[in-house]
Simulated scan of single mutants.
Amino acid sequence: MAAAYARNRAHLEPWDPRRDESFYTEDGQAAAVAGQLASVRQGLLAAYVVTHGDLVVGRVNLNNIVMGVLRSASVGYWVDAEHLGRGLASGAVEFACAQAQGRGLHRVEAGTMVHNLASQRVLERVGFEPYGMAPKFLFIAGAWQDHKLYQRILHDNPL
């Protein structure tokens, strides 16, 4: 993971929160993964990597998993700069939606910065629909960023 993030640092910086230098190291990634695994054990997160051979070329997560009457999660994803345009992001998001449905979730949501047209195309390609705007939604790249919100209803069967 450290190598993947270091290799893609400039590619991801416009879309990510600002990162401490340690994030790009093996120790930093070990700590990040340990925290994520704790969230996985609590049922709050499902995390996956996208690989090409032995190389990590992306990630997709189901974040903020909520059961009960909501049965929802947020999807987040990225793809290595050298592997763009191959359908990996669409495949990863589709995979995450299948995993969400298998967990009994009703919907998956996503937010993209308003100017992130490539990510919006990915979401629309795999069946997400826009449903609103969130002004100053997330602190990304050193500023509060407006986001276009999307959702995909997975099924209408109450569980």
Score class of each variant (00 low, 15 high):
1 M>H: 09
1 M>K: 06
4 A>S: 13
4 A>P: 02
7 R>G: 02
8 N>P: 06
10 A>L: 13
11 H>Y: 12
12 L>W: 11
12 L>F: 13
15 W>D: 01
18 R>C: 09
20 D>R: 15
21 E>W: 11
21 E>L: 09
22 S>Y: 13
24 Y>V: 00
28 G>C: 06
28 G>V: 04
29 Q>P: 00
29 Q>T: 02
29 Q>H: 07
30 A>C: 03
31 A>H: 12
31 A>R: 15
32 A>R: 14
33 V>Y: 07
35 G>I: 03
36 Q>T: 00
39 S>Y: 02
39 S>Q: 09
40 V>D: 01
41 R>W: 11
41 R>H: 14
44 L>R: 13
44 L>Q: 12
44 L>D: 11
46 A>W: 06
47 A>Y: 07
47 A>N: 06
47 A>S: 12
48 Y>W: 15
48 Y>C: 04
49 V>E: 10
49 V>H: 10
49 V>F: 11
51 T>Y: 12
51 T>Q: 15
53 G>P: 12
53 G>H: 09
54 D>C: 07
55 L>Q: 15
55 L>T: 14
57 V>I: 15
59 R>Y: 09
60 V>Y: 13
60 V>I: 09
60 V>K: 12
63 N>V: 04
63 N>M: 07
63 N>K: 10
64 N>T: 08
65 I>S: 02
65 I>V: 11
65 I>R: 01
66 V>G: 01
67 M>V: 15
68 G>H: 13
69 V>Q: 13
70 L>E: 14
71 R>P: 00
75 V>C: 05
76 G>Y: 05
78 W>H: 05
78 W>I: 04
78 W>M: 08
79 V>T: 10
80 D>K: 04
81 A>D: 14
82 E>I: 06
82 E>H: 13
82 E>S: 13
83 H>E: 14
84 L>K: 12
84 L>G: 10
84 L>H: 11
84 L>P: 00
86 R>M: 11
87 G>C: 02
90 S>E: 10
90 S>R: 14
91 G>P: 08
93 V>K: 07
93 V>C: 04
94 E>Q: 14
95 F>V: 03
95 F>D: 01
96 A>F: 13
101 Q>V: 10
101 Q>T: 13
101 Q>I: 11
104 G>M: 09
104 G>V: 07
106 H>L: 08
107 R>G: 01
109 E>Y: 08
109 E>A: 08
109 E>L: 07
110 A>W: 05
112 T>H: 15
117 L>Q: 14
117 L>P: 06
120 Q>C: 05
120 Q>Y: 10
120 Q>V: 05
121 R>P: 02
121 R>C: 04
121 R>M: 08
122 V>H: 12
122 V>D: 03
123 L>D: 02
125 R>F: 07
125 R>I: 04
126 V>N: 03
127 G>T: 02
127 G>V: 09
129 E>V: 14
129 E>Y: 03
130 P>Y: 00
132 G>W: 06
132 G>A: 05
133 M>W: 08
134 A>Q: 11
135 P>N: 00
135 P>T: 01
137 F>D: 10
137 F>V: 00
139 F>C: 02
141 A>K: 08
144 W>T: 01
144 W>Q: 04
145 Q>F: 01
146 D>F: 05
147 H>N: 04
150 Y>E: 04
150 Y>H: 10
150 Y>K: 04
151 Q>W: 12
151 Q>M: 03
153 I>D: 10
154 L>S: 03
155 H>K: 00
155 H>I: 00
155 H>N: 03
157 N>H: 12
157 N>T: 13
